[in-house]
Amino acid sequence: MNSSKPNSNYSELAVEASGLVKIFSRHRAVDGVDLAIPKGTVYGFLGPNGAGKTTTIRMLATLLKPDEGSAKILGHDLIREPGAVRSRVSLTGQFASIDENLSGMENLILIARLMGYTRKQAKTRAAELLSAFGLEEAAKRQVKKYSGGMRRRIDIAASIVVRPDLLFLDEPTTGLDPRSRNQIWDIVRVLVGTGTTVLLTTQYLEEADQLADRIAVIDHGKIIAEGTSGELKASVGSGVLHVRLLDREKRSGAQRLLSERLGTPVHLSNDPAALSARVTQTERVSEALGELAKADIRVTDFSLGQPSLDEVFLTLTGRPAVEKTSKESHA
């Protein structure tokens, strides 16, 4: 199974949506979303809080009726055949979609029974999944006593008691530590490897970059850019120069100088000593750095690299993806 790039079976779409609209008391939460998600790929919805990611997913998972537009999920019409859609998809919501009062084992047995397993099969299946997710020891503990990472894993385990053809993961790693986040990423990769299409939402650009074959950047209910992470980066520019100064007082001077030399706007980072700028001609970089040295602005480190998706987002929307006031900082 080729999960790296989707061109293998473009004709076969897991999700095909056109003009999806959802209005909540005059606010257009989703405002004309078109999607074409190939089977067997990971598709990332990237956007800040309130962009319309969750609402779109809830419509595609048959939880909300679109006010306008139509969609086919794995060949089934979303509006006319919700039952057929439900039997092929699975949803892991943004907030624990498991019963926190029950143990991990009981949660999985519950779902397995609902999916049609006999009591005995349900127990076997639950035990298998707990072991595959490294949760054997916590099997009998109430889920509310689980750590954030364990909770996420049991939540995903519940979604794949019967392996779905399409899995919705709504912000699967929000608030997780890097280790737990990596575990979730591994699980997603294995899932895609077995043929499941994954549609995930995230506020983390790194996550979309790491996992998604294609990314839709969503803002104010609209898709403002779509493509592979490479394509999105390329649309922004050839590269980005990051500079960190020894003396933060000199940042505005450095900003002026760099902007003159590079001929592009220079962006001040959250880090008070750092700046970054898009680079169109790489040969100008050394000139610009030399200029800083002449002006006695000492540089502690610098790098020239591909633009990050953060910068992509900034270029596309004119503001950072994650607001500075947000508590959930981008790890």
């Binding site: 019963d99 029950l102 397993y117 794949i160």
Partner: peptide, 29 residues
């Protein structure tokens, strides 16, 4: 990861749960 892959692939799709059985399962919950 290998174990997870096996668990995902080694599976037969069970028949759909009936209305009574689903309700009783929720009662159990």
């Amino acid at each position: 990861q290998e174990q997870l892959r096996k668990v995902l692939l080694s599976q037969e799709r069970p028949p759909k749960a009936g209305a009574v059985s689903a309700s009783l399962t929720f009662g159990w919950r």
